[in-house]
C-alpha cells in the first residue's frame, strides 16, 4: 500500500471529507510526526506504536575504497516500536 492508496482507502470510508481533505490531513499528520521527532520528542499512538529518536555516537570509520580513515559524526536516527495491538494483529496467522 502506498501513500496514495492510503489516501484513497481512508477517503472512501469518510463521509465528511473529500479526497483532497484527506490528503491534507495525512500529509500534515506525517509532517507533524517528523517535526516532533526533529525536536527530539516522542510520539505515542495508542494501539499503533511509538516513534522516537535515538542517538548514534560518532565513530572512526574508513573509506572502503581508499582505505582512508575518517570520522563519522554522531547522528540521530528515527525509530518506530510497534504497539501491542499492532504487534498482535500482524502476528495472527492468516490461512
Amino acid at each position: 500500500m502506498t501513500r496514495s492508496e492510503l489516501i484513497e482507502a481512508v477517503a472512501s470510508r469518510s463521509s465528511n471529507f473529500s479526497k483532497k481533505d484527506v490528503e491534507i490531513i495525512i500529509s500534515t499528520l506525517f509532517r507533524s510526526i517528523a517535526e516532533s521527532l526533529a525536536k527530539g520528542e516522542k510520539i505515542e499512538i495508542r494501539g499503533f506504536g511509538s516513534f522516537k529518536v535515538k542517538n548514534r555516537d560518532g565513530r572512526k570509520g574508513r573509506n572502503p575504497k581508499s582505505g582512508e580513515g575518517i570520522y563519522v559524526d554522531s547522528k540521530k536516527i528515527p525509530f518506530f516500536k510497534a504497539g501491542k495491538e499492532l504487534k498482535e494483529r500482524v502476528n495472527t496467522k492468516k490461512k
Binding site: 500500500m1 492510503l6 470510508r13 469518510s14 499528520l29 506525517f30 499503533f48 495491538e85 499492532l86 494483529r89
Partner: peptide, 24 residues
C-alpha cells in the same frame, strides 16, 4: 479520519501488505 488512517495501516499490515509512505 486520523483513527481511520492508523486503522487502515494496521489492516494492511495484518493482511501481509507493506505500507509505503513516500517521504516518511
Amino acid at each position: 479520519v486520523v483513527d481511520s488512517v492508523f486503522e487502515t495501516i494496521r489492516t494492511s499490515l495484518e493482511n501481509g501488505d507493506k505500507v509505503k509512505i513516500s517521504g516518511f
